[in-house]
């Protein structure tokens, strides 16, 4: 199933843990250091470099873009390190996250509370995933190098619903 960004409530409701989904539209790449900065900005009442309403954040730190390429290798990084920052972002309108691996119980609760969704994609498949990115641009914190914030135009970017808005977790039955 193909879905489009920004995410709305109607679309989110149709997403169930375990479904294979293709995302088309604009998403934002941000990982540890950028998340830390987002939270500081929110705390100080400052404007974020991205609009969180209905937004999907992809936990990614791509390799540098080679000549004549759109982006480098750009697979997901481990999501649980973002768990400490996620509740504040959800409260401010974030609707989707893409990463890899488990989230804490608390994050599952928050995802349910804010009717958001967590997607997983394929770790270690950064070359493959780069093929679904049609445009990429660093839009904030270039000084963070690989941890800068990216704006990414994606076409049918492949993900699996990891935690749905009903709080169902794909890893729940797993050890």
């Amino acid at each position: 199933m193909e879905i489009f960004t920004p995410l709305n409530e109607k679309t989110i409701k149709t997403l169930k843990a375990g479904m294979w989904i293709e995302i088309t539209g604009k998403i934002f790449g941000a990982r540890d250091a950028a998340h830390k900065k987002f939270i500081e900005l929110i705390k100080n009442g400052d404007k974020l470099p991205i609009d969180l309403k209905g937004t999907i954040i992809y936990y990614v730190g791509p390799t540098p873009t080679a000549t004549n390429k759109i982006i480098g290798s750009c697979g997901p990084t481990t999501s649980h390190r973002m768990d400490i920052y996620t509740p504040v972002l959800l409260k401010n309108g974030l609707k989707g996250m893409i990463g890899k691996g488990k989230r804490t119980e608390n994050i599952i609760k928050e995802i349910k509370k804010f009717k958001a969704v967590y997607f997983i994609t394929f770790g270690g498949c950064g070359a493959y995933l780069s093929k679904f990115i049609k445009k990429s641009e660093i839009i904030a914190f270039p000084e963070l190098g690989p941890e800068a914030v990216y704006s990414l135009d994606v076409h049918k970017f492949p993900v699996i619903v990891g935690i749905d808005s009903y709080g169902k977790d794909i890893y729940n039955k797993r050890p």
Partner: peptide, 12 residues
């Protein structure tokens, strides 16, 4: 793809 197009196997 990594081998053919010289895109690193993983971004890490």
């Amino acid at each position: 793809i990594a081998q053919k197009e010289k895109i690193p196997i993983c971004q890490d």
